[in-house]
Simulated scan of single mutants.
Amino acid sequence: MVFFTTKFAAISMYARWAYLWPCMGRVINNVCSMLVTAPAVAIISSQNVLAAVSVVLVLFVGIAISLLGQFGQDGEGEATHGGLALATDDLGVSCEPGQADTVPLEAPELSFDDRLDGFVAAFGLTKRERDVLEALVVSDDSVQDVAAALFLSRSTLYRHIASINKKTGASSRVALINFFWSWIPQD
């Protein structure tokens, strides 16, 4: 799921609805799981060891080839950007590099605290929403662990996240975190 999510997050900068694509990793993972479950159960229940070993080897080789292909693309960093055309954003503005009024793909180097303070100021987040956002973007803990660390109930944490999403226009926690790290402060 992490593999698919990171790949779709990388693709999202080229997509028309960038907030939709990071969640597609989970969708693809679930679809693949559904497609693999029935054949896997059939092979296991048949107790045919040769068929089971053959399927495992084919899957292993397929995964190895796909991973090697991914490592080969990231050699100079250009293959990941060069093969895809940048899409227009939701307002129909083209995001092609070379246009004078487009935002560069790389964010200026900011310290985390400066980025967080700028983001909070730009979107009018409260102090508690700032704490929630900081906890979300710096940790990979579960929602329950984040809520416990902030001394909040899980439902209160979800309300804060929903409020932040509403203020920033994000559609999910994943989209919010991606938006935070890709956000470029306007001077």
Rank of each mutant, 00 (worst) to 15 (best):
M1A: 13
M1F: 07
F3T: 09
F4C: 06
T6W: 10
K7L: 14
K7R: 10
S12Y: 02
M13G: 11
A15N: 08
A15K: 06
A15R: 04
R16Y: 15
R16Q: 14
W17K: 10
W17N: 15
A18E: 11
L20A: 15
W21F: 09
P22C: 05
C23T: 13
G25V: 00
G25F: 02
G25A: 02
G25L: 01
R26T: 07
R26F: 12
V27M: 13
V27P: 05
V31R: 09
L35I: 06
V36R: 12
V36Q: 13
A38Y: 11
P39A: 03
A42G: 07
I43E: 05
I43C: 09
I44Q: 12
I44H: 15
I44L: 14
S46W: 02
A52M: 13
A52Q: 07
A52V: 11
S54N: 13
V55Q: 08
I63W: 12
L68G: 11
Q70R: 08
G75Y: 12
G75N: 08
G75M: 11
E76H: 15
E76R: 15
G77M: 05
A79Q: 13
T80Q: 07
G83K: 15
L84N: 13
A85G: 00
L86K: 10
A87E: 03
T88W: 12
G92V: 06
V93P: 07
E96V: 14
E96W: 06
P97M: 09
G98N: 07
G98H: 07
A100E: 14
A100V: 08
D101V: 12
D101E: 12
T102D: 03
V103W: 04
L105P: 09
E106G: 01
A107P: 06
S111V: 01
S111P: 04
S111R: 05
F112W: 03
F112C: 01
F112H: 12
D113C: 11
R115N: 00
R115C: 01
L116Y: 05
D117G: 10
F119Y: 11
V120D: 02
A121F: 03
A122L: 04
A122C: 08
L125W: 00
K127W: 12
R128S: 10
R130E: 12
D131F: 04
V132K: 01
E134Q: 09
E134M: 04
S139M: 04
S142A: 08
V143P: 07
V146C: 01
A148C: 04
A149D: 13
L152A: 01
S155F: 01
T156G: 00
L157A: 03
Y158Q: 00
R159M: 08
I161G: 02
K167D: 03
T168N: 02
S172E: 01
N178G: 04
N178E: 11
S182C: 01
S182P: 01
I184R: 05
P185W: 02
Q186A: 09
Q186M: 10
Q186G: 11
D187P: 00
